[in-house]
């Protein structure tokens, strides 16, 4: 808030067809099979943080970024298929931390909350998207809960008030967590013009429009420009 702003938002959208991509580690979070018939494209890109966010462009912050296509609402069958094709998402409680800190999941998906610390933990949320409290449980035990409403759930632990995590519940499988090097990739996105949202717990979320053609790959290079909430 005290520093002058360099509100530089680099914004490059380049459709580069099927050119081989940057050599980065990639995980496609999207469901793979079964959608070969309809025309789809791929979105890849890199994320960084501007100075004003006071967040470092480092792996610790990158992995808290979720990139998602916001304006598609998948059909119930597609969602069920996407759910089946994924492993149960897990948020571990280890070393007094929820791991991962940010987890995108599909609507209706069960999330597993194991406790790996040698003391009792608790998971609860008081938010509007989902209100629950899993109670206390010791090391080695695990509890599950499903998320049936799209939105953001802030998780906390009653007995350790500094523990915090976020679950982002998405209406379609076209989302990805940014990798440790700041890159992301979303496969099999239906063609058309979409709104792509970038979310980080401490930086102000923003969105970009992307237009996909069949078999094309859109490349983005974007930066979070502001801190969340507080001005400047």
């Amino acid at each position: 808030m005290k520093r002058a702003s360099f509100s530089k938002i680099r914004f490059v959208v380049a459709a580069i067809g099927t050119v081989p991509l940057l050599a980065v580690a990639q995980t496609a979070e999207a469901g793979e099979n079964g959608k070969q018939n309809s025309p789809t494209g791929t979105i890849v890109g890199k994320v960084s943080f501007d100075k004003k966010t006071r967040l470092k462009s480092k792996r610790k912050e990158f992995v808290k970024v979720v990139v998602s296509v916001e304006d598609i609402e998948s059909s119930a069958e597609d969602m069920a298929m996407a759910r089946d094709s994924r492993n149960t998402p897990v948020i571990d409680q280890k070393d007094m931390t929820f791991r991962p800190h940010v987890l995108p999941v599909l609507l209706g998906e069960m999330v597993d909350f194991p406790n790996s610390d040698p003391l009792f933990h608790n998971v609860y949320s008081n938010g509007e998207t989902k209100r629950f409290d899993l109670g206390m449980y010791p090391k080695g035990q695990s509890k599950q809960i499903d998320f049936d409403k799209p939105g953001i759930v802030e998780l906390r632990c009653k007995v350790h008030s500094e523990m915090q995590a976020f679950i982002l519940i998405k209406k379609n499988p076209y989302f990805a967590t940014v990798q440790k090097d700041g890159s992301f990739r979303i496969d099999n996105v239906p063609v058309g013009t979409h709104t792509l949202e970038f979310w980080h717990p401490k930086a102000k979320a923003f969105s970009r429009e992307v237009t996909l053609e069949d078999g094309s790959t859109v490349e983005l290079d974007v930066a979070f420009s502001e801190r969340r909430g507080r001005r400047g």
Partner: peptide
């Protein structure tokens, strides 16, 4: 508040409880 509920499940203690009383 940080005071959690102690439900019936939690209070059913078993013989694998940790007696290494650790704190973080």
């Amino acid at each position: 508040t940080p005071m959690p509920a102690h439900t019936d499940d939690v209070l059913l203690l078993t013989n694998d409880m940790s007696v290494d009383f650790t704190e973080a």
